[in-house]
């Protein structure tokens, strides 16, 4: 198929489609604005709970936060998926091919943020990059940035902490991906990549998945992605918010400041707990929000969150098919160190 690259962009959106999108945007905005007054009314007036009691505060936190996060996720995942449908892993690889280390790492981290990518494709993408001559360190920068600075994390940070913290998180995550990939590349660890990766010959015709889509296709992709992400993360989300609500209501601030906020070890403990914990940004952030409210420093909670999303056992097990144990250990060590450093730095500056 030789679809011209620009043909899909010139396809005009049908007027009815535009109207439906505009209506959805307005509906979303109204619901978002109504969230707080609605739950104030239901929890305090209809159910008669007292905002000053632990139970009242916890129940209100749970229902309000659940609704807010669900709305934020729905809106932003849809928009991000539609925008990202113009980008693809194939295009990213073409942009990275032939780049030197350094510049390549910066480009890879940036592209890792904007390219639509599922961790289930991490292994074929790794092979595809390396076999096409993208340097190992540059490929790793891409693979680190992609889960670390993901749209779910960005949306939730924006909703819960505002844009300053969000920008700091993005900058921190990108820096970790760039530096960790650069360091791992400089260590010349190619001997710890399974040899078949370098022997893989690419014989297929490369199909760029971002080309040849109509607006209808892209919008359908956005809707499906919202459904599939919400279906995947709702248990984590509910558990995270329930834990957050419980801590919000019952754990006294004094306990946290006594046990967890001592600056020196706090970040190490947070990262140590975060690495084996398998969850995603949606499950972790409500918890992070509550812990921060209770006095845990921002750098510590962000380091915790980064270690949960960037380093997970299931992903390491997947990557084990292409990377030897030593390289996986080096990967965890270098990324973990980067997260620790970022956590301490944030604690100093915020």
């Amino acid at each position: 198929m030789s679809t011209p690259v620009l043909a899909d962009r010139s396809v005009r959106m049908a007027p009815r489609r535009r109207l439906a999108l505009a209506a959805a945007a307005v509906g979303w905005f109204v619901l978002y604005q109504l969230n707080l007054p609605w739950w104030d009314w239901i929890v305090y007036d209809v159910a008669g709970l007292d905002a000053e009691t632990r139970l009242g505060g916890a129940v209100h936190f749970f229902v309000y936060d659940t609704t807010k996060i669900a709305l934020l996720l729905t809106g932003v995942i849809f928009v991000v998926t539609v925008l990202r449908s113009f980008m693809s892993v194939e295009r990213t690889r073409a942009l990275l091919g032939g780049r030197r280390e350094g510049v390549g790492n910066v480009a890879a981290a940036g592209l890792g943020v904007v390219t639509p990518f599922c961790s289930c494709s991490a292994v074929p993408a790794f092979i595809g990059f390396v076999a096409a001559g993208v340097p190992l360190g540059v490929t790793l920068s891409f693979l680190i940035a992609s889960p670390l600075v993901n749209e779910v994390a960005i949306v939730l940070l924006l909703g819960l902490f505002g844009w300053k913290i969000t920008l700091l998180y993005i900058a921190g995550g990108m820096t970790i991906a760039i530096v960790a990939g650069y360091v791992l590349g400089k260590l010349r660890l190619e001997r710890w990549v399974e040899p078949f990766v370098f022997e893989t010959r690419l014989h297929g015709n490369v199909v760029d998945s971002s080309v040849g889509l109509t607006w209808d296709d892209r919008i359908a992709m956005g809707r499906e992605e919202v459904g599939s992400i919400l279906r995947k993360i709702w248990p984590y989300l509910l558990v995270g918010i329930a834990l957050g609500a419980a801590i919000h209501g019952w754990v006294p601030e004094q306990w946290i400041t006594d046990h967890a906020s001592s600056g020196l070890w706090g970040v190490v403990v947070a990262v140590g707990l975060g690495i084996p914990l398998y969850s995603n940004a949606a499950g972790v952030l409500p918890l992070v929000e509550t812990l921060h409210d209770k006095g845990l420093p921002m750098g510590t909670v962000l380091a915790f969150m980064m270690s949960v999303v960037a380093l997970s056992m299931p992903e390491m097990i997947l990557l084990r098919r292409v990377l030897k144990k030593q390289l996986i250990a080096a990967y965890v060590a270098v990324v973990g160190t980067g997260i620790l450093a970022t956590g301490y730095l944030f604690n100093l500056v915020i």
Partner: peptide, 22 residues
């Protein structure tokens, strides 16, 4: 990966990749 596919799922018909990543 040897088919040149980096985003799954993909469909190959008679040794030609028809689409990938969706």
């Amino acid at each position: 990966a040897s088919w040149g596919v980096m985003a799954t799922p993909a469909l190959v018909i008679d040794d030609k990749v028809v689409f990938a990543g969706r």
